[in-house]
Design a protein around this nucleic acid. Structure first.
Lengths: 163, 163
DNA sequence: CCATATAGTTGAGATTGTCAATGATAATTT
DNA sequence: AAATTATCATTGACAATCTCAACTATATGG
């Protein structure tokens, strides 16, 4: 405990991460990239969710907002494929974002089955703050890696996440 | 399509992976390591689950079996911390593995609250086959990476997954 | 025109995540 | 030693997520 009593309360400080005895690190699982990715992602999203909570977002809703704020005007189907979620989940995610006035559904002139999702001004504004929060969270999650290592990791993950 | 009509049916061939339009790859999300890890893991576990299905396992139950088969004789609490699952989830996972005769609960002589989980012979045997299936799945998931790249990725992920 | 496929939506059922409470035991304090 | 506090496995409740099967409206190909 620091001497200061002031309680700034960085949200990610509340994230509990249990230590793992060396004995368990001897198994084969720690050589499996998928397992490592799953654990890394679990730790990462715990931090990110904690940082996003004050903004009433989770990594889930944040990721939708992030794509939409990219300006690519995606359809819901495209959001589903990109985020690897079921189309029905996109419906409810866009529903709540739309109710909050962060996002809008517009008719697609070329395909009237499809809807174009766009960010509103409020959506863009909230996204800016959310992105900053996520960057902070990522920074703590990746504390063990220096800059070049993070770049390497990004490149490698991008290769397997997309063709 | 090959000329042969024989239908070997590698399970992972049934995994549908939708292509993503370049337009969406312009956003900021593809620079976020956590997002990339989430997508990579989603693709990976789809493949792995498909390969494990014939063995009546999922990545979930497989990961428990894998740790137990590492011979470290973990307690359920240790399994929970290692796999980042709630202790109550470990209870039901161990329950079904135990009912299938793959794993056993034994009293811990040094702490009678705790239980030591061990693999049975049948458990070890199934694990061997499951591990092979997972290796095959990982091989398809990581097709975009060569050997050295996979090693790099493993090292980087291990750094953030564990201290 | 007809058949087939696709986008968004709704709803159901299974799986997973989260959390609180409990009984047994351990560890710590008084 | 007794009392308090903490930890482990377990149970149960509830929310969130996943998965799938319909359905309507529209598009596309023959």
């Amino acid at each position: 405990m620091a001497e200061s009593t002031q309680h700034v309360g960085n949200p990610w400080e509340g994230v509990a991460i249990a230590a793992v005895p060396d004995r368990l690190l001897a198994g084969d699982l720690v050589d499996e990239i998928e397992f490592l990715a799953a654990r890394a992602r679990s730790l990462g999203s715990a931090h990110a969710n904690a940082m996003l909570a004050p903004l009433d977002l989770k990594v889930r809703s944040y990721s939708v907002l992030a794509v939409v704020c990219g300006g690519s005007e995606p359809s819901q189907r495209e959001l589903a494929d990109f985020l690897r979620l079921d189309p029905s989940q996109i419906v409810s995610l866009v529903d709540t974002l739309e109710q909050r006035g962060l996002v809008s559904r517009a008719a697609d002139s070329r395909d009237r089955r499809s809807k174009v999702i766009r960010a509103t001004a409020a959506g863009m504004e909230l996204y800016q703050r959310a992105a900053a929060a996520v960057r902070t969270a990522e920074n703590t999650s990746l504390a063990a890696l220096d800059g070049p290592e993070r770049d390497q990791l990004r490149v490698l993950l991008r290769k397997i996440a997309f063709g």
